[in-house]
Amino acid sequence: MDAIKENTGTAVSERKRAMGLLARASTEELQAGWLVIEPKPEVHPVRGPETGLVMVRGRIGGGGDPFNLGEATVSRATVRLGSGEIGHGQVLGNDREKARLAAIFDSLYQRPEHRSAVDLLIDQVESRIDAEDRKHAEQTAATRVDFFTMVRGDN
């Protein structure tokens, strides 16, 4: 499997991170990112965009063997650039246009001349998500219980 050999080490973890963040991007963020891509590459659809299901699994007791928890809607697309790179997009939900754009950015991520534009986009998405997560974590932290003990005097 040449494809697997190519995708080893840091290349895999970088692309994995990029694809995960593209899945978290909003359609508007992806559309804005697409606007600044110059020159626009030739993009051919290979598969989809289509919506289907992924069976989400949990683990018995939280860390044991897997069980099927329930399904989630997932939209996915695969595209090929004129230059041959294949991109995959897969996102939770029904938004097929988002899946298609995510696939395009995944393919562009593999082109050196577009890499920085894609990096800029996913960094923006990451900072937005980090800010949201921090806000939620801080709001949750404010609901943390600080126990104190009432000392009952003897007299």
């Binding site: 494809a3 697997i4 995708n7 694809m19 978290r24 997932v74 996102v91 939770l92």
Partner: peptide, 16 residues
């Protein structure tokens, strides 16, 4: 939620 992508040989996140 992560899904294995057979074409890639690794799992990617689909979102939370």
């Amino acid at each position: 939620v992560e899904l294995d992508i057979p074409e890639l040989g690794f799992a990617v996140s689909l979102g939370p």
